[in-house]
Structure formats: C-alpha cells, structure tokens
Design a protein around this nucleic acid. Structure first.
Lengths: 359, 359
DNA sequence: AGGGGTAGTGTGAACGGTAACATTTGCCCT
DNA sequence: AGGGCAAATGTTACCGTTCACACTACCCCT
C-alpha cells in the first residue's frame, strides 16, 4: 500500500486551460454562434463554403462541444447511464462491454451506476441515479434488483433494457431485448437426454421475477416433451460456493446422473462437490453450465455449456435505445448470435446400469 | 433473439415529465433560488428555520439538482470518467467496482470509457473521451494501453490512477496508487521455496511499461535473496489459453516443480497443461496464482494464490481524486488490505528426489 | 413591379444551476 | 441615536449550447 504525494492543487495558474467555446469559433470564422452550432450538428441548410470554413476553424482551434451545455440546452443527450447490479457476474459484465462498444461507436458517453442488491429499487432512487431528467438509461435486468429498477422507471423515460424475460402483463411493448434462454436450456437438456440420461436435474439461478426463470422453463419443456420424470428444480444462487453447497446434498443420490446449472459458476461448484463425492465427471455424472464464461473452458473437466452472446445483446440494447432517441439517424439494429451448445469434457453418456454406483 | 416493438417516440404528450428546478422550489418555499442553492450545498449562513422549510419543500416536490447545469455553472464537477482497457480482467473490474462504490458514496457520477487495446493512446484521443474540459479522470493503468493513457493526460488535469508501478523518471508525484505486487510476488516465491522447491519458474503477465513487471521483480528478489538459481521468466499473456500454451513446453522439463503465475487465469491454463502432461498437482508440481479471482477457489485443485485488494485500491484512487478536487471537504483516504497469500490445494512440498519423474 | 416562397443566416431567450455583489435586517458599541 | 459589522437573503450575470423566430437575399411567378 503506497501513495505518492498528491500533486499541488491546480491553483488556476497563469495559463488557465482556456476552453474554446462555440462563440470563439464563431468570431474566428466570422459567423454567428448559431451557424457554428448548425455546422456541428450537420444541419442541412448551411452553405457549403460556410460549412467548410467553420470546420476549418473548428479543427484549427480544437473545439469540442461541451456535453453539459448541450444537454442543458435541451439538445440530444448522447449519453446513457447503465444500471446494473453486479458487474462481477459474467453476463452483466459482457453485456456492459457490448453496450460500451456500441455507445462509443455512436459517440455516446456511458455512465454506470451499480444497483444495491437487496434493497428494493424505488422509482425515486432510480431517478436520482440519472444525471439529468430525460437522460437515457439502459438497464441490465438479469436479476431482481435490475428488474425492479427497470419497472420503477417511468414509462415515458427514454430507456431500454436487457432482460431475462419480457414483463408479463403490463405495457408489453417497452423497448427491451432478451436472449432465448428458454430454447437454450431446452437444447442443453435435450442434449443430455440424448446421451441416455433418465432425467436431468437443474440448479436454478435466482429468478429475476416472481415467476420461475426462463432457463428453468426450457429445462422443463424438454423434460416434458421427452416424457421424462420432472424433478423439482433446486434453488441456488450465482456463486460457485452456492453451486457447491447445493450439489453436495444432491449428489448423495446415486440416481442423479446429469445436472444442468443456471450458470458456469454454479457448475464449477458442482464439479467440486462431485469430486468430493467421488463421482467421476463425465463418467458417473454429466455437468452442463450456462453462459460460456471465459474460465469455463479451463475448468477440470472443461465445462460443456451454452454460449450466450451477451456482448451482442448489449450492442442490440444500445441500438434499440439509439433508435428510440434518434429515429432518423440511428443505424439498423445489429444482429447477435443465437445461443449455442458448446460440448466439452464435462458431459457424456449416461452410465450404464451396472456401472452406476449402488444406492 | 427477440425484440419487442419499440415504444412510440415520446411525442411530448399532454403530461410532459415536468422537471422541478431550483426556482420552482424557491417559489414554493417563498425564498430566492439562491437560498435554495445554499441549502442544497450546505452553505453555513442560512437560518435554521429557512433551511428546514426549504428542505421540506425539496422532499415534497422531489427536487434533484441537475448535474449538467451544476457543472456548466462552474460548480464542482462531481463526475469521474474511468479509463480502463479490459473490464473482463478481474483486476480491472474489481478496481472499477471499488471506484464506483466510493464515487457513489461521495455522490459522484461515474462514466466509463474503454481503451482500445493495441492502438497507442494519443493525448487528443484521451482528452476527447472526457465529457467536459476539466472533468476528472481515473485511469486503471495495469497494462500498456492504460499506462499510455495515463501518461498522455496533460499534467494539470484533475486525474488519478491505479498503476502497476509508479512512473520512473518524470514528475514522480502524480496522484497515483499501487498495490505492492513486488512484495506479494516475493512472498509467494518465498513460500514455495520454503516448501523445498529448488527454484520457482514464473509466467509473466505482459508488463505495463518497457521495464519488467513488479511481480517479476518480486519473484527475482526472493530467488536472489535465497541464493537460488534464477531462470528466465516466461512471457505469457492474460488468458488461461496463454497460460496453457506457455506451460505446455515448460512442463516437459521434469526439473520444474513450482510455477508462479502472473494471474489466476494463467494458473488455470497451467493446471490444464499439467494434467495433460501427467503431472500431479500439488504432488509433482506446485502452481500458485495471483489476484484471487472468484473462481480461483473452485479450480481443481483449488488455487493457492495471492489475494489483492483491488476494490480497496479502487476506493483509494477515488479518494485521492476526491481530495484533489475538494481538498477541504473530502474525507481521509480509506485504507485497503495488504496482499495476502491464500494457501489452497495447488501447492505443496517439493517432490523428493526419488519421487520425481525421471528426466 | 409586386408578392411569395425558400435557402442561408442572425438575434434573443431559454436551460438550471453557481458566483459575485448588493441589500436588508438585527445587534452591539460608544 | 447613529455607526459599524455580521448574518441572512435577494439580484444579476454568466456558463455553452440549442431552440424559436426574425430577418435578408434571391429566385420564380403572375
């Protein structure tokens, strides 16, 4: 732990940084400040020669529009605040990355505000996080705090969200995007069933709403469609530790041969529990994760998982918001990848009856 | 991949969101707007009864100061832009988390801007990322792009940084903080040496400067001090894959019994390479990581690593900046934890000669 | 020649705050 | 009683931008 001596307070020395404003440019170019504003904002009715001259002066003087003033004056905000709960989770952080990328490309500033997990999100709280009334907001609503924040946002608000599922009743047409977790979970489950497992257990991440999560639904869908027994899903948290604790009791049951996890971290915990229980993965037990976090491929055994294009989702969300804010100039919505099952080492054929450890 | 129909453009309907300004509050409370401003900013010379009344009205009307206007008017900026390169790396994201936490506590808005890795950071580029001339900046400079951005920042700029190492020559007193990586690496190395290993190999993360990294230095220090052979450090990247590839050739050498890695991700890769090479960890080979990322405890075997308090570092950096910006009101610098060696399963006594696989 | 559109430009007033200075009030002192 | 001072409050200007509108040319039409 070290600290350099702080630099002396900038005492507004002889050479004040001298910010160059739109009026400075105007004077230099011999036009009114409003004309400069028009040039900067690409207004069509400016004579070509004037535009060129102004642009020259701008380049020469190194003028940059002041975002604050621009926003204050009621112009385009060009700034988004991302509301998210836990950036240490892969899904959220990858989505954020996508948003930032797209926002930067569109010359938007991006702010970030982390939601307190636990505390319910009051409309007033949420509003207070936004720098300016009317400032745009992007919510990463994969968990309960996120969804609450999203719902707490006044409807007129320029905002979009990445959600786990679209809201049920209520105004169903808010600008929001989601990945098809349900189909992805169903696909993973079918894969395991196809390997000969009699059924698949599911370790659920916390649901973002009062209803059961989409991934849980997908898992159920597949089980039902295959006419397999449908056990209770197991409620877990987000962390490896949570997966470990939940799996410890589950794996005492020798009939459990396949476990689908709500995310890769849980799967990591399950892997450890399996090791401790003396269960060979994938020999005795197949474990499948979700998300394809960066470390999933380097677990032991390497995790079979479902790759989700969170970055693409983030880009999409920003695009949605952009289109909302600037319907005429915003580019078309970018595409993102479908969920994809990545088969690695942690899953395999169901153990044949005689190999299976005796109950 | 799904998309809800975008909400119709908010057409400024009958009930415009009607933002409540300082003048609205003033009128309602029967005072001048300036008095409201004074109350909001905790100016001392306001009569207690007036203050109470104004505060009541503020609460009642739900007034929130407009950040933009405040900044425009030349008040305190109360906003930081964090410059970072790769948020998917644990160190950077944890530091960001700490910054955000401290910033929120101090009622600062935080913006984020991701540096292009690869491209050199030009002063102009960096300046352009900042919303307003004079806006404060916090740089997470653990890698080369970060350091370049930090160096490209004009000296007068209100900025602070979390760095791998303090800059060498140059103005050595810029506001910056760092964790004692060097001591931490030395500690880990001593620990391994104490376990009987003849020497320790080191997989280096890329250095943030032209010089060798601090962790590398610490490792060298310990080896030298113990009079042990000092092999060349191995240059790796940041990812598990990089650790895997680097370790693959290294582990062919049976005399290698202890590997220290520049981060936990590299260690994950080494673990996999060890498995493939038929090396038992920790029996034949000890592997030690760095950072104590969340998944380190759930690797197989669980990683021995050095816990670094990145969140604390982030809080500290923000505190440094805060003190710079508001010397009179900013609280004292928060403390953060010293690096700490966390011994788990991936390290153990050096194999005795006769156990060691034959070269 | 006068009327009407339109391209190009300028003017003044916001936007919501803070800073600097002006003003009012109340108290103490001589 | 009047001068001096400090506390409490009000007034005005300004930050850098956009918006709404006014204005000037100029062209086209009848």
């Amino acid at each position: 732990m070290q600290e350099a001596t702080p630099a002396p307070r900038s005492a507004g020395g002889p050479q004040a940084p001298k910010t160059v404003s739109i009026r400075d440019v105007a004077k230099e170019a011999g036009v009114s400040h409003q004309t400069v504003s028009r040039v900067v904002n690409g207004h069509p009715k400016v004579k070509e020669s004037t535009r060129a001259r102004v642009l020259d002066v701008i380049a020469e003087m190194g003028y940059t529009p002041n975002r604050m003033a621009r926003a204050l004056a009621g112009g385009a905000v060009r700034s988004v605040t991302v509301l998210t709960s836990d950036t240490s989770l892969y899904g959220a952080s990858a989505t954020l990355k996508g948003i930032e990328e797209a926002a930067r490309a569109a010359d938007f500033a991006v702010g970030i505000s982390v939601l307190d997990t636990g505390a319910a999100q009051q409309p007033a709280d949420v509003a207070a996080r936004v720098s300016r009334p009317g400032e745009a907001v992007l919510v990463i609503a994969f968990d309960a705090p996120g969804v609450q924040a999203w719902q707490a946002l006044p409807v007129g608000f320029p905002a979009a969200a990445a959600v786990e599922r679209p809201e049920d009743g209520s105004p169903g047409d808010r600008p929001q995007l989601w990945l098809d977790d349900r189909a992805a979970a169903a696909q993973a489950t079918r894969y395991l069933l196809g390997l000969g497992h009699e059924t698949v257990r599911y370790l659920a991440i916390p649901s973002s709403t009062t209803r059961v999560g989409r991934r849980t639904e997908g898992w159920r869908d597949a089980l039902r469609a295959a006419g397999k027994p449908l056990p209770e899903p197991l409620d877990a948290g987000w962390s490896p530790r949570s997966g470990y604790l939940t799996a410890r009791s589950l794996l005492a049951d020798p009939s459990v041969t396949a476990v689908l996890c709500g995310n890769d971290d849980l799967a990591l915990g399950v892997l450890r529990a399996a090791r401790e229980a003396g269960r060979d993965v994938p020999g005795d037990l197949s474990v499948v994760g979700f998300d394809d976090a960066p470390h999933a491929a380097y677990a032991h055994p390497a995790l079979t998982t479902v790759r989700l294009d969170f970055e693409g989702l983030g880009r999409g969300c920003f695009g949605l918001l952009h289109r909302l804010l600037e319907p005429d100039t915003a580019p078309a919505l970018p595409l993102w990848a479908e969920p994809e099952l990545i088969v690695r080492e942690s899953s395999g054929p169901a153990p044949s009856r005689r190999d299976r450890p005796k109950g």
